[in-house]
Simulated scan of single mutants.
Amino acid sequence: MTYDQIYEPSSHLLTPADPEAPQRAARLRELGLGQGPDPELDEFARELAHAARELSGAEQTPFAMVNFVTDRQYLGGLYTPPSPDGAVELGREVPLDHGYCPHVVVRRKALVLDDVCDYPRFAGNPVVDKLGIRTYVGAPLIDRTGAALGTICIVDSEPRPWGHPGLNLIKNRAEELMKIIRRREGLPG
């Protein structure tokens, strides 16, 4: 993929090139992940959201997801906080150009955006206007084979000063989830 295919002047930054997507899709199929909602992963996302709320001291619990990235994003684990007005409703499938998880998968590194609007590269993402996302914390899920399967992430409509505590939280929880996935394979955690 050329620079012109990745970035078009006066348009949003498109999803980064991801040459590992076909191998990732095959690995996810082997593991039985990313094909449908998973109650254990939904519970994991709920626990992650509550830990994030505790860490940030926010009144409202943020959104949390277990996201498997191939030619699409599939939220195998999803927690959406109760909303009295039903303002934001997330489905399980998300286009690749929505959000920051594809960047985390390609980079294979955690990403903390206290306020996405502070980063020109990310401020124009469709989730900012469509969903009102203002903060993001995500970490890659690196499989025992070395494949980056996807991410776990936290998003919210208010900027949050996550800093190192947020980075540590998301990285530690990503490691915890990989232990769960290894146990599902019948391997020691």
Score class of each variant (00 low, 15 high):
Arg72Phe: 02
Lys179Asn: 14
Pro9Trp: 04
Gly32Ala: 11
Val105Cys: 08
Val116Arg: 03
Pro84Arg: 15
Val116Asp: 04
Ser10Gln: 13
Asp18Thr: 03
Arg24Pro: 07
Ala25Thr: 06
Glu185His: 10
Leu96Trp: 03
Thr80Ser: 15
Ala51Thr: 06
Thr135Leu: 09
Tyr119Glu: 15
Leu28Ile: 08
Thr80Arg: 12
Glu30Ile: 08
Ile133Phe: 08
Leu75Lys: 00
Ala52Glu: 02
Cys101Ser: 13
Glu175Trp: 11
Tyr79Gln: 07
Glu8His: 10
Glu158Thr: 13
Arg108Thr: 09
Ala26Tyr: 09
Ala49Glu: 08
Leu90Asp: 00
Pro19Val: 12
Ala58Val: 02
Asn67Arg: 00
Leu14Phe: 10
Glu30Thr: 11
Ile6Ser: 10
Thr61Arg: 01
Glu20Tyr: 05
Ile154Asn: 00
Ile170Phe: 07
Tyr3Met: 13
Asp129Gln: 10
Asp115Ser: 03
Asp97Met: 04
Arg92Ile: 00
Gly86Tyr: 01
Arg121Met: 12
Leu28Lys: 04
Pro39Glu: 12
Asp97Thr: 09
Phe68Pro: 00
Lys171Glu: 15
Thr2Ile: 10
Glu30Val: 11
Thr145Asp: 15
Glu185Thr: 12
Ala21Pro: 07
Arg108Tyr: 07
Phe44Gly: 01
Thr80Gln: 15
Ala139Ile: 07
Arg92Gly: 00
Lys179Val: 13
Gly163Leu: 12
Pro161Cys: 09
Leu131Lys: 12
Ile181Gly: 08
Asn172Phe: 09
Pro9Thr: 06
His12Arg: 11
Ala147His: 14
Arg144Leu: 14
Ile154Lys: 01
Gly91Asp: 13
Pro102Gln: 07
Ala139Gln: 07
Asn172Tyr: 08
His98Phe: 14
Thr15Asp: 03
Leu13Asn: 08
Arg72Asn: 04
Ala147Met: 14
Asp38Gln: 12
Glu40Phe: 07
Ala21Thr: 11
Glu185Ile: 11
Ala139Pro: 07
Phe63Asn: 00
Gln35Arg: 10
Asp18Phe: 15
Lys130Arg: 14
Tyr74Phe: 15
Met178Trp: 04
Arg160Tyr: 07
Gly186Met: 12
Leu33Asp: 04
Pro140Thr: 06
Tyr74Cys: 02
